[in-house]
Design a protein around this nucleic acid. Structure first.
Lengths: 201, 201
DNA sequence: CATTTAATTTAACAATCATCTAATTAGATA
DNA sequence: TATCTAATTAGATGATTGTTAAATTAAATG
């Protein structure tokens, strides 16, 4: 049955150390001992995890001397599972250094936007027109809403007005950029952290 | 940390009954008791699973009267995870009847191809030129290879020749259509059942 | 052949998890 | 208010799973 194959695939990926293995292997192929050392676990543990990853065909093995060298299967990298692949590609194309620089740059941008568009008492002086800056402002305002809580339109309007009088525009922006979703007149925070990062914002 | 979010996402999907819930909800939204009955489990079990699915934001809830009505989140359906979404869409767009008909049709096609292109002692009379028929023949020939076993080129050639003298062409076809992969002169069966189905062959 | 390096197996342990029963809460209805 | 329906909670149970230490296998090297 079809269904169980899919479940097994997810099972194979539903362990922290197995994902870490995939991320490491996406950067460069390596043998079991190296993996064990990088993850801080026993070789036996690596054997265990690799077996599961091989069983669903997302890791391949090649023998060299007396060692096994592991790598992620081409098919995974090429076709499947956006979330995982993008996470791996990130790690692959970006050196740690680049990664840090990128984070730094974004963080600086963020600070500067928050400083220039918000007053010290957190009211929004003006809605940024530049997309990236606008997103930073929206994200900032949304972050005090409760995850899973349902808000009436009235509550949302009131909340938004603590930042800016034009609640109608901002409410629309929240929906449009998927920071919130609406249904049956009820507004709710979108748990978008789930997929925000690997959508190449 | 980013990584754990992804792991949690996979954890949420790595249970048979949770996937079944998603498939059911993709067809139509429904309440907890109905789900319980359809899956043959206790309402308490449904509560348990729904909680996990909600925690990662792929199921949403709405209250109606004294019941909770669940549905899959739009974001999952729109953007994410090809494998799961395609499985759900299949179930969604196809009535059970259609599904059966489709399977029947394919099965008939398969029988006819095997009958007309292979002799009773399983030698291939001629390589089908029509893609669909060719794939059926390739799949048929490949199915006696062992999963995970490594074959030398010589072994593969010999194996293929039990079906057809033109091993060079067929070996190339196996690779091209990804029934096998080659690396360092070693051939191996591709565990492609993993993703074959949801690639819309 | 003895040694070293790498991987696997086995058995054990602790933690997590799916499921159930039974009790409880909450809303709707008569 | 009493009753019915739906969902949740709490606790218990059994199964699965991640991890390790220790023993073993296998290949390479001196």
């Amino acid at each position: 049955m079809q269904l169980d194959k899919l479940v097994n695939y997810y099972k194979a990926l539903s362990d922290r150390n197995r994902i870490r293995i995939l991320i490491l292997l996406a950067k460069e192929e390596m043998n079991g001992l190296t993996l064990a050392e990088k993850l801080g676990v026993t070789p036996a543990t690596i054997t265990h995890h690799i077996a599961k990853l091989k069983a669903v065909g997302i890791v391949m093995e090649r023998r060299e001397k007396n060692a096994s060298i592991y790598r992620v299967s081409q098919y995974l990298l090429e076709q499947n599972d956006g979330a995982l692949v993008n996470l791996m590609k990130e790690q692959q194309n970006m050196s740690d250094n680049d990664n840090e620089q990128h984070r730094d740059k974004h963080e600086k941008m963020r600070e500067s936007v928050l400083k220039s568009f918000f007053t010290p008492d957190q009211t929004l002086k003006q809605i940024p027109s530049q997309l990236k800056k606008k997103l930073i402002a929206l994200e900032f305002m949304v972050q005090n809403l409760e995850i899973g809580k349902k808000y009436s339109e009235k509550e949302i309007n009131e909340y938004i007005q603590t930042f800016h009088p034009d609640y109608a525009t901002l409410r629309r922006e929240f929906i449009m950029h998927q920071y919130m979703f609406r249904e049956n007149e009820v507004y709710e925070l979108n748990p978008r952290e789930m997929w925000a990062k690997w959508q190449n914002l």
